[in-house]
Each structure stands twice: as C-alpha cells, then as structure tokens.
C-alpha cells in the first residue's frame, strides 16, 4: 500500500480506538452526576460545575489520540 493510504488508515484507527475509553468515562461521570442531582437537587449548581471540569479532564485521553492522529495526517 502507499504511504498516503497507510497514513489515513492509521489516523482513523488512532482516534477511533482512542475515543472509546474517554467516551465510557464521560458517560459514567454524567450518569453519576445525574444520580447525585436526583438525590440532592439543591446541590445541582455545584455538581454541574464539577461535572464539566472532570469531563474536561477525562476527555484528555481522547484529545491525545486526536493530536496524534492530526500529526499523522498533516505532517
């Protein structure tokens, strides 16, 4: 196969496999946050902020995969 084709396949694989973990993680965070809000609706403001922050941190593995695949594609 040509290098260009291999690069495209590799970039697709990198982001595709890399996104799985963080997707599961973010789903778990959202589920737990919803549960917590259901139990204690008064604390929803605080929980929402913390939820966004921890989601942004969890997302970072997917972002690493994205950066790697972008580097494969564009350099």
């Amino acid at each position: 196969m040509e290098l260009e084709v291999l690069k495209t396949i590799a970039a697709g694989f990198a982001i595709g496999v890399g996104a799985v973990g963080s997707a599961i993680g973010e789903g778990m965070i959202a589920a737990k946050a919803m549960e917590a809000i259901g139990r204690n609706p008064e604390a929803s403001d605080k929980i929402t902020t913390l939820m966004f922050v921890s989601m942004a941190i969890t997302e970072s593995t997917a972002i690493y995969a994205l950066v790697v695949s972008l580097i494969i594609l564009f350099s």
Binding site: I63, L66, V67
Partner: peptide, 16 residues
C-alpha cells in the same frame, strides 16, 4: 505534556 496537549488539542480540534 498533559497540561499543554489538553488545551492545544481541544482548541485545535474545535477549529478543525
């Protein structure tokens, strides 16, 4: 690495 890639990746990915 983790601190810089997090910000860079998010913003660059948003642009793309």
């Amino acid at each position: 690495l983790s601190l810089s890639f997090r910000l860079f990746g998010n913003i660059f990915a948003g642009e793309v």
